[in-house]
Design a binder for these strands. Structure first.
Lengths: 199, 199
DNA sequence: CCGTCAACTTACCAACTAGTAGGTGACTTG
DNA sequence: CAAGTCACCTACTAGTTGGTAAGTTGACGG
């Protein structure tokens, strides 16, 4: 266990990967306040570093936004893959999908891309594209679950699976937004439960 | 047709009610860019007046926000009253309710309070209260329609009308948010249609 | 014709915005 | 051990933010 190439960079400065910590703080700020509701100074203060140091790792705010989506998307996609590995029925998969939203809401946060969707008009092109990609991936996964559930006769719904998937994503995002305003997670859970029960 | 008290203020300066024009511009800015996505300078530039003049009519941005909701809410409530006066069946009322959202979306805007809901954490208390009140009123109207529809057997749904109303408001708001990101009004219409068809 | 008042204006302000230039010390590598 | 590189720093910029103080203008009533 000498100098393994994979575990370098763990120097004496106890710097536990600054870029990751920056993303952690920025993510929380976007999820609670929106992309125009925080500044580099806010992040710097929390981490006890300077704004200039932030710009070293993330030259522009747009680039920070892009990286934020990138990481968030891969985490969510991983969670969806984990649901698939569990090999439960389609309805249970949808319940677990909704449970992801519940967890976020419990942490007093919104979906990162839901927030960015409402700031959409003010975002740089690469960030906009990232937001759309995130929702495309979510819908594609849902279409897979819906198709399988329909075939296995564990789900029953009218219309194209794509429209149902779009309804689900939109409804969960919207319900989340309202539930936070009321500070009421149960409100979200009731709506999510009903949406899934109707299938 | 002398000096009628009701038509005063139409002076030679052709000033067609500045506060209303300020609200018009600010409303559009909130509906497209969010509450933290515009400034007094933006409004001043469009209207060709100074920031200071804006502060004369709306001392603080929070006060502007409050007045914005106040006017928006009374307009929407008036639209709901108009739907009630038409005395069509419950399903048609819901269709007309969704049509309000479609009109807003066609104008490349979001629901004012939907936008404010996503900026919620950064808002002053009176603005927050206004947002909640708006959604409460919307849900109360929907509960009325749902109850009547269920009684008249023109609507069929499981669960409490309150939960269905919350689902509808949340789903329409969320679908709107996503449809705008994709620049696709038809996407919203398909989701709205399906939500109403399921009742 | 004088005073009042609403509706503005000019001219500020301190704080904050994203972003940059140029340096410093620690560590790595030829 | 010199050269480089990494991750940070101090110090700064130009522009923007919401907000204010102190006028100015023009209409209207007495």
């Amino acid at each position: 266990m000498g100098s393994n190439a994979a575990m370098a960079r763990t120097s004496a400065t106890a710097t536990a990967d600054t870029p990751q910590r920056v993303l952690d703080v920025a993510e929380r700020l976007v999820q609670t306040r929106g992309f125009n509701g925080f500044s580099y100074a806010d992040i710097a203060e929390v981490l006890g570093i300077t704004k200039a140091s932030l710009h070293y790792h993330f030259p522009t705010k747009a680039e920070l936004g892009r990286r934020l989506i990138e990481r968030y998307e891969s985490r969510v996609l991983e969670a969806l893959a984990a649901i698939d590995r569990a090999e439960v029925d389609a309805r249970e998969k949808l319940r677990r999908y909704a449970a992801i939203y519940v967890e976020v809401l419990r942490a007093n946060r919104m979906c990162l891309c839901g927030m960015l969707a409402s700031d959409y008009a003010t975002l740089a092109k690469p960030v906009k594209d990232g937001v759309k990609r995130f929702f495309d991936r979510n819908e594609a996964w849902l279409v897979g679950v819906l198709d399988a559930g329909r075939k296995a006769r564990t789900l029953r719904f009218s219309g194209a699976p794509a429209v149902v998937a779009q309804t689900l994503v939109g409804s969960l995002e919207g319900a989340m937004m309202l539930a936070r305003s009321y500070g009421d997670v149960a409100r979200f859970e009731a709506v999510a439960e009903r949406l899934i029960a109707e299938l």
